Simulated assay, not measured.
Amino acid sequence: MRNSYLGELCSEFAGTMILILFGCGVVAQVVTAPDGSLGDHDSIAWAWGIGVMMGVYVAARLSGGHINPAVTIAFAVFKGFPWRKVMPYIAAQFLGAFVAALIVRVGYADLLRKVDPEHTIATQLVFSTLPGNGVDGVGIPTAFLDQVIGTAILVFVVFAITTAANNPPLSNLGPVVVGLIVVGIGMAWGANAGYAINPARDLGPRLASLITGYETALYDQNGQLYFWLPIVAPIIGGLVGGGLFILLIERFLPKEEELPAPAVSEPRPNV
């Protein structure tokens, strides 16, 4: 018999890996290309959204396609996801992000060395986020609030499109909508802290870069310890977004058992 639990963990690993291969890959392409000749902010936002969409498609059938610890924790708190699975899911997500970042690091090693021989903050953005995207002017409190807001938006809308009583998109279109959510967040909430909105997406690549030459990977451009912020703030944001959805929408929806049964088409005779 198939080990369905192992399959869930493998799918979370693979889905998060696909997400990071697209996401960190596009940032590497943009950062290492001369004069923005191979992309810009919009291409980054779209590729991250595509990465999320493809990652969810990879994982959704077996695990639900969380590919984000903030989503997993929010589902455990508000949607009955088993707590015994939370830490294994998060571990699988982190490992998927870590392995994918190592692949990007090796694949772009020559170009990264060419544009940033010392492996500094200038190209650290390929792997992890920074306040103000590495530009001074955004403080830690603002970056923290930004991550709470961005992840709250993400989880609020994810709950909206996965709640049966809320007339969600058909299941095969769900990943597309989730990907578009991330594109929108990147275009609207990308300035203050790089819209990590996913602890695994940030910590896995951050550690991969740390062990491959980026000595300041745990810090921001001002030398402040920063790695904790894209972990803690998204988890809080996910709980805020999930709680607001329950408060503002779900408690007013009909119970799933009260929903009309889906129409069943009559079998057509063979002619």
Rank of each mutant, 00 (worst) to 15 (best):
N68C: 04
V52K: 04
V104I: 15
V58N: 03
R84K: 13
V115N: 07
A74Q: 02
V126E: 13
A143H: 13
Q124T: 09
G137C: 01
G139E: 05
A92N: 10
V71N: 14
K79L: 09
K85T: 07
A59F: 06
Q124I: 09
M87P: 05
Y89G: 00
G65L: 02
I67L: 15
A143P: 12
Q147K: 00
L130W: 13
V148C: 06
Y108Q: 08
A92G: 10
D110R: 13
A100L: 10
A122L: 11
L125K: 12
I140S: 07
F78T: 12
L125F: 08
P131R: 09
T72G: 05
P141D: 10
S63D: 13
V58Q: 06
V106Q: 15
R61T: 15
F78N: 05
R84S: 09
L145Q: 08
F144E: 03
L112I: 15
T120G: 07
Y57D: 02
R84C: 06
L130C: 03
L145W: 13
I149D: 06
G65R: 01
F75L: 12
S63H: 14
N133S: 07
V115W: 06
T72V: 05
Q147E: 03
V99L: 07
T142A: 15
V106P: 03
G150S: 11
D116M: 12
S128N: 12
G51V: 07
T142P: 02
L62F: 12
V126K: 12
L145V: 15
M87I: 15
V86Y: 12
F127E: 00
G96I: 02
D116K: 11
N68V: 00
A70V: 00
V77M: 03
V135Q: 01
V148N: 04
H66G: 11
V148Y: 10
H119S: 15
G65I: 00
G65T: 00
Q93R: 04
A74L: 02
Y57G: 02
P131W: 11
G65V: 01
